[in-house]
Structure formats: structure tokens, C-alpha cells
Write a protein that binds this DNA or RNA. Structure first.
Lengths: 169, 169
DNA sequence: ATTCGATTGTTATGATACAGAACAATTAAA
DNA sequence: TTTAATTGTTCTGTATCATAACAATCGAAT
């Protein structure tokens, strides 16, 4: 299966590449992009996000906002730096994100009594209702993915492998 | 393992959230981000790209450039639109990318004899040498990942699962 | 109690990635 | 020969992301 010296089917159809060009660029050890972990990860992530984004265009919700609302729902009272750091968002960029959620009446910053510098973040009652709807939409999206993967078992296998990739040891 | 009603360890340490807040935002059916496919995919992809980018800072090569050079090495003679489409890059954005590679003397646009509109893309001899070094660096990067995954078998399993995600059927 | 360093939220700024519209040159189709 | 489609290109706008700086506040060391 040495394909570096084989004319790819598309190019063959079009009569390209010419033989002299082929030898000039016939570099050994060039793997197909399809076998490269990072490339495949990126393409898969792009695909999933595209489906996610389309699912949430009606709710006008972006992935980052989804994750922030999700964290606030499960663990209210965290401060901005904590949520930002956990989600890998620079705290500088978190400000506008939180501003937007607050302007929409979904979340609020409360003055922390113990530390006057920090804010503790919470969903508003409207935010709680919003998150409920949000999770219904998300469930459909997620089930679509699990379906494609072949079932919950495969989903777990995938997440376990992704775990290993990102594990720091 | 119902953790929606359990005080997360960090917040517990800091005495937050207070109980009344907890009940106010205790929304059922809020999955932890760690179980969400898209979220995990994004984090893993970010991690891999970070390692990739660090590996290639010395060569001043970005992921997109890597992929373009890789395609040109394996399949010389393709035209811009073909490579761009295959890699999911808008042909408008491909122009600057190719300009840069050409300015660095790594690749070139040749006037296609059959179609005066299109260019056929090729590595220069210097580009061929560059790609050789590039692949050496990439191999180290990739082996690091395979190591973390637990071996080539696991790498294959991962790619097969990513395949299913992005498969259109 | 005072000084000093660290933290928190914030603003401003720049770089990069990505998408869409429009256009000239060229080709293919009617 | 007119018409429609393609190719490369430029321009433009919009997210995304990182970095630096700053005031307010806190914690710790003296």
C-alpha cells in the first residue's frame, strides 16, 4: 500500500500529476491526513460544533455560552475567574460573555460579601427556565451523535480515549 | 452519583454555594460538561493543537500550512480550489496562505496549460526538503500522542470513532 | 498599622480564523 | 454567440483568542 508513489485517483482522472513532477515531490514518510490524530480531531470537532451551532441558532446561543450557563446551573456561586479558568477562557474575554448573559436576563453577578473584588455568578429564574429548554435542545443534538457513534458504549469509549489524550501525567 | 444536588468539592471548601441558592438553581437534567461529546472533543483538539503548534513554532508553521504542504507532497498538481475544499478552507482564505508558502520558496503556482484560470500547485525542491524536516517533527509529536493514548491500537480505535462522528450517511 | 505583592474584574488592543460578496478572466454550455 | 459557471482574487466584516495595563481590593509580612 505504498501510496506515495501511486497516482491518486482524482489526479489520475485529470491526467495529473505528470510523472516528472511526481518523482520530484515523492517524499518518503508523508502520511495521509486521514491518519493524523490532530487533523481528524479537528475535523470531527468542527462537524460536531456545526451541528451544535445549527441546533442553537434559534436560541441565539453559542457553545461558550452554553458551557457557562451549564456550569452556573450545576454550581452556582462560582466567581468569574473560576468558571473562566475551568472552561479555558481568558478572564478578560469572559467579561463580554457574562455581560451578554446578564443583558439577556439569564444570569447575574452578585457582590460577594466576603471578597469585594469578586462577583459570584448565578442564573436568574429566567435563566433557569432557559437552561431547561437549552438542555432539551442539547439532548436531541447529543442523541444524534450517540446514534452516529453506534450507541452509548461507543460514546463512552470515545470519551475515555479523549480523556487519555488530554490527561496530564 | 446524583451530583446535581451535591456540593462540588471546590465550592464546599469555600463555603459556596449556599443552600437556598442551590435549590433555586437545582435544574434537573444538567449533565456535567465532562460527559458532553462536543465539549470533550473541543478540549482534546485544543490540547493536541497546542502541542502541535509548540512543536512547529521553530519552523514557523501553522496547522493549516502543514496540511497544505502535506497534500501538495502526496498529490502535486492539484489546483487551489481542490486543495482548499478538501481541507475545509474557503478558497478566498486560501490565497494568502498560498502566497505565504510561495514567498517562503516552499511551494509554487504553475499556470495550468489546459485551463488558464487555474493554477496547479507544487512543492519546490526546497519545499520537498522542508517537508522532510516537517515530517520528522510531526512524527515526534504524533508518537507522543500515541504514547498517551496507550499504543497504536488505541490510536486506531480513536480514529475509527472520529470517523463515525463525521461520516455522512 | 503599614507596606507590598497578589488577585479580581475590567478595558483596550492586536493577531488570527473564518465567512460572504463582488469582480475580472476564462471556460463550458445553450 | 450569447449565457452561465468556474477560478483566483480582493475586500470586508465578524468572531475568537491572547496580552498588557489598570484600579480596587485582599492577604501577608513586617
Amino acid at each position: 500500500m505504498s501510496d506515495a508513489t501511486t497516482r491518486p485517483p482524482e489526479a489520475a482522472k485529470r491526467g495529473r500529476p505528470r510523472l516528472d513532477e511526481l518523482t520530484a515531490t515523492d517524499v518518503e514518510g508523508i502520511p495521509a491526513l486521514e491518519t493524523i490524530i490532530g487533523y481528524r480531531l479537528r475535523r470531527a470537532q468542527l462537524y460536531v460544533f456545526q451541528d451544535f451551532i445549527e441546533s442553537f441558532t434559534r436560541m441565539k446561543l453559542r457553545p461558550a455560552e452554553f458551557s457557562v450557563l451549564s456550569v452556573m446551573a450545576r454550581r452556582p456561586g462560582l466567581k468569574q475567574t473560576e468558571i473562566a479558568e475551568e472552561l479555558g477562557i481568558k478572564r478578560a474575554n469572559f467579561v463580554a460573555l457574562m455581560d451578554s448573559l446578564e443583558r439577556r436576563g439569564l444570569a447575574e453577578r452578585r457582590k460577594a460579601d466576603t471578597d469585594k473584588r469578586s462577583h459570584s455568578l448565578h442564573l436568574t429564574p429566567e435563566g433557569v427556565r432557559f437552561v431547561r429548554k437549552m438542555m432539551a435542545v442539547w439532548t436531541a443534538h447529543e442523541e444524534r451523535l450517540v446514534e452516529k457513534l453506534g450507541g452509548p458504549k461507543e460514546r463512552d469509549r470515545l470519551i475515555e480515549l479523549l480523556d487519555r489524550v488530554v490527561a496530564r501525567d
